[in-house]
Design a protein around this nucleic acid. Structure first.
Lengths: 150, 150
DNA sequence: TATTGTTATACTCTATAACTATA
DNA sequence: TATAGTTATAGAGTATAACAATA
């Protein structure tokens, strides 16, 4: 991808004031940086996200992962397949519903996550460098309302 | 895509506090809603974005569009092709650099943009419903710093 | 030699439909 | 009848390389 700095000439347009546009541009920059940082661990953001939730201790089902990550169920299958093949997560039958499978990290998965998490935080700090600490937590709480409804 | 409400059970994880994740989720919701709203005008968000900048009066070149929208130059070609085929924008040789082509909206393009812009604002308001007016402008200025560097 | 636009190509991401096993 | 997971497939989005015209 080209440079991340915008051509400032277009920064005074209607589009540049649309929150949807700004959201799309910010995530595009963030995702490409995050993918670059996670590449050191052979992870992409989507695999990282699944691994993170697998490390949460909440034993999410694949359907829960799909809904929370806004992925199709079939995409979750292939991501979990890839992580399972690498020994990072395991599938288990859910108690109470034998159709569902819960995803949990292995010891190796947790170890890798610890490293990847640090890399992700470093990258995030870099992306948010133009913001003060206060502004960062403001942004976090505003985005939580928009993205998670609270 | 599935439901837009998150499974609240996973909202208390490390991932749910990562700004990059929240950015990705918010834009995923926003983009799919925007695509649905713009579908009434046979536009997708990317075409809408190009049309918007074509209506700005700044006569952006295709390279400027690519950089500002974080698209590959070849993608801009096909988006402009589609808009031009519909008589919404026109290409012109740039003064001063005969390699470059500037993109400007036609009268029909401006008319369509006026309608599409209203639809986009309505959708945006819906997506930002959980925020107060003050929070919305806070979010806008924080995102401008992250997405545009100011 | 480098850049703009263009074309062709391939790769990743996302969505759809159909199947199975459970509920 | 509906849902969780799976598979296969197709479509949308994105990236890469090569070329012509111009700088």
């Amino acid at each position: 991808m080209a440079d991340e700095k915008s051509s400032p000439r277009l920064a005074d347009t209607d589009l540049a004031d649309e929150i949807e546009f700004l959201l799309a541009r910010a995530r595009s920059i963030g995702t490409s940086r995050a993918n670059a940082a996670l590449g050191a661990f052979n992870l992409k953001v989507r695999e990282y996200s699944v691994l993170s939730l697998a490390c949460s201790g909440l034993d999410p089902s694949q359907t829960e992962l799909a809904s929370f990550l806004r992925l199709d169920a079939s995409q979750v299958v292939s991501i979990v397949d890839a992580l399972e093949d690498r020994g990072l997560v395991v599938r288990a039958r859910a108690e109470g519903d034998r159709r569902a499978k819960t995803i949990a990290a292995t010891a190796a998965g947790r170890d890798l996550y610890t490293l990847a998490y640090e890399a992700a935080r470093t990258e995030e700090a870099r992306s948010l460098a133009p913001l003060t600490a206060t502004e960062r937590s403001q942004l976090r709480s505003l985005l939580r309302k928009v993205a998670l409804g609270g």
